[in-house]
Design a protein around this nucleic acid. Sequence first.
DNA 1: GTCTATAAAGTGATAGAC
DNA 2: GTCTATCACTTTATAGAC
Lengths: 186, 186
Amino acid sequence: MTTTRAEQRRQTELRILAAARRLFGEHGYDRTTIRAIAAAADSDAGLVMRYFGSKEQLFAQVATIPAEGPIEGDPDQIAELLTAALGGKLADEPAAALAALRAMFSHPEAGREVRTAMIGQQRQVAALMPGDDAALRAGVIGALTIGTVIGRHLLEFDGLADATPGEITAVLRPLIRALVSGDASE
Amino acid sequence: MTTTRAEQRRQTELRILAAARRLFGEHGYDRTTIRAIAAAADSDAGLVMRYFGSKEQLFAQVATIPAEGPIEGDPDQIAELLTAALGGKLADEPAAALAALRAMFSHPEAGREVRTAMIGQQRQVAALMPGDDAALRAGVIGALTIGTVIGRHLLEFDGLADATPGEITAVLRPLIRALVSGDASE
DNA sequence: GTCTATAAAGTGATAGAC
DNA sequence: GTCTATCACTTTATAGAC
């Protein structure tokens, strides 16, 4: 087989990225060492530095949060969009988001990124929701979202870790609908 | 004024504990150094070690999660108990719980403690709830709980950080009631 | 291109002077 | 009792041998 130098290097880079995603997601930013990533990728700490510049830059490449599509429509459509988006986050092993989530509380920049992304969506949603307390209800939707993801992937609550995404969204859908429309809260 | 040596020492210990609570809560376990705690308490790193043995033991004293009372009664009473307990956690600055929460994702032992405490309560509640998917709904209640606390104290979602505990529980109460009773989910 | 050796800085923990 | 000085270790990052 003919593997050029460039191909070799690309494959090593991919192995390093995969190892970094997994280890950052499992142990957080501070407890994941360049050495451990290199070892897990069957590579070398010096190479990791050479390819990615610094631990910080490697983390940034690995822990970016995928952007969400814009939210629009009437309350029912908004509720369905939010429920579907949450269902997607419950699918198995979104390693990149996990790394950002776990690092959120110890790595200031990761925390800011999660916060910015979530607050932006909440404001977007709140603007389309009826009622005086729309901002509060949008915040509760955000809390429900992040709590469910954490409960399933990180803390592994028995009810959440065992169920399928469909079963979970079936329970969440009516809650989100009630929060969006404002029923039973004023 | 007459301050005995024992009193002096006790006051220094209390200052160290307060500083540790604050710094662990703000920056997490790994990023909080013994030196920083000592400086914040106007004390000395050597003394911190002498009084508390190790960084680990100091953290354990500071980040224990207060035990919850037992849950019992009919579904309506359970929902009210859970809502009230959550309201208490939204009161301002529960520094000890914050330290445990922030460390949860990087400090394995802290994570286990939070997980054990929350799963225990969820199982207790699920056993008293009607329906086949009681465990799932109990997990969602747990997710809502931890998500709300994180959203208010750590991520500071605008809707949650601004509101009073009473306003927040007013929104959460009907959600929790629906989850406990199982209405609109089967 | 890849990896070894090492530098530079910061950590928790300890010993001992005052 | 309190604090200074230091140890032993680990970290990221760099320089240079192969």
